[in-house]
Amino acid sequence: MGLESSMSEVITTDVAIIGAGPVGLFAVFEAGMLGMKAVVIDALDALGGQCTALYPEKPIYDIPGHPAIDGQGLIGQLEIQAAPFAPYYLLDQQVTHLGTQEAGFRLRTSKGAVVEARAVIVAAGCGAFGPNRPPLDGLEAYEEAKTVQYLVRRREDYRDKKIVIAGGGDSAVDWALSLVEVAESVSLVHRRPKFRAAPESLRKLDDLAKAGAVDLVVPYQLDGLEGDGGILNGVRVATLDGQKRVIPADVLLPFYGLAMTLGPIADWGLGLDHNHIAVEQRNSATSVPGIFAIGDIATYPGKLKLILSGFAEAAAAAHAIHPLVFPDKVLHFEYSTTRGVPTAAQ
């Protein structure tokens, strides 16, 4: 399994999968079950897409066979499921160019890797996304030192630290409830007393605030960072009428949502519908022959934005791609219970 390629290397594969979230990883498995090799490209530096970026330790309840499984656990299982087919992962890089050629497609990434594939599956979730960053002086130094972070990968990393969380939505409230169990202190900053979160979460937050376990810093907003060389020691907050205070802090977690964009995908002529890619429901084909879209980025009448819907779309796309990769080979459908799991070498 490769993790990156040199700028001069050309990687030849059957299917190029753009997006390493749960649906993209399952597409590796479905392609592999039909004897097709896959290269997976993702802008993030780790597998998992939004599961890893947004809720690695939060439970997901609608995955068949798993009454509850957290995002990172689901990605780990999907990675294991895909492993027999030896996918080649190109992480921390974005597809910047996609062009056609006689044998399919040629893709180039932001790190100079070149991939030649017979077919392309776009499994890019909501497209390229990044955090909405607070407009604070000197923010970049704290980001580089990782004392300002926009996602929580592992709760244990925050044990015995002074945590300041900024935001008023589900992410801010949920992580306040979770990190209070391991952190030395948790302060939650919001510009108004009303939070936008699930009622049960708000009830728990209110109980913790009354017990002094969480400091609700309202109505305040971020005003500045205090520290040296990117090492944070305090977060300055202010009210709209100019009252200021400094909250001792080791880490600031601003949860102001994500800025999402299709990026270069918008220029590929794929028949966009309100920043989604319109596909045929039966096989996830786009308006460009040989390119398919699955998961949250794909749309069709009656579409349900569920991970399990994306799994089914991955299977349909893989079967539609098979005759493109093996034009002289008839595909006889077999259940996995009959066939088992073939290896990439077969």
Rank of each mutant, 00 (worst) to 15 (best):
L3E: 11
L3V: 09
S6H: 00
E9T: 11
V10T: 15
D14V: 12
D14R: 15
A16V: 15
G21H: 05
E30F: 04
A31H: 00
D45Y: 10
G49A: 07
L54V: 01
Y61M: 02
H66V: 13
P67S: 13
P67L: 13
I69Y: 04
G73L: 01
L74N: 12
E79Q: 13
Q81A: 15
Q81V: 12
A82Q: 03
F85S: 15
Y89K: 10
V95H: 00
T100L: 13
K111W: 03
K111S: 15
E116C: 03
A128H: 02
P131F: 08
P134S: 15
L136N: 14
D137K: 12
D137Y: 05
Y142P: 05
Q149D: 10
E156S: 04
D157E: 14
D160Y: 03
V164H: 05
D174T: 07
E181V: 02
A183T: 04
V186G: 12
S187I: 01
L188N: 14
P193I: 13
P193F: 15
K194T: 14
R196D: 11
A198C: 03
D207I: 05
K210P: 11
Y220S: 05
D228T: 14
L232H: 03
L232N: 05
Q243E: 14
I247M: 03
P248W: 03
G263C: 07
G263W: 02
W268Q: 12
G271H: 10
G271I: 09
H274C: 09
I277P: 04
Q281F: 07
I291E: 08
I291W: 01
A293Q: 09
A293V: 10
G295K: 01
G295T: 02
D296Y: 00
G310I: 00
G310C: 08
F311D: 04
F311M: 09
A320F: 01
I321K: 09
I321F: 03
P323V: 10
P327R: 02
D328F: 07
V330Q: 10
E334Q: 13
S336G: 15
R339Y: 00
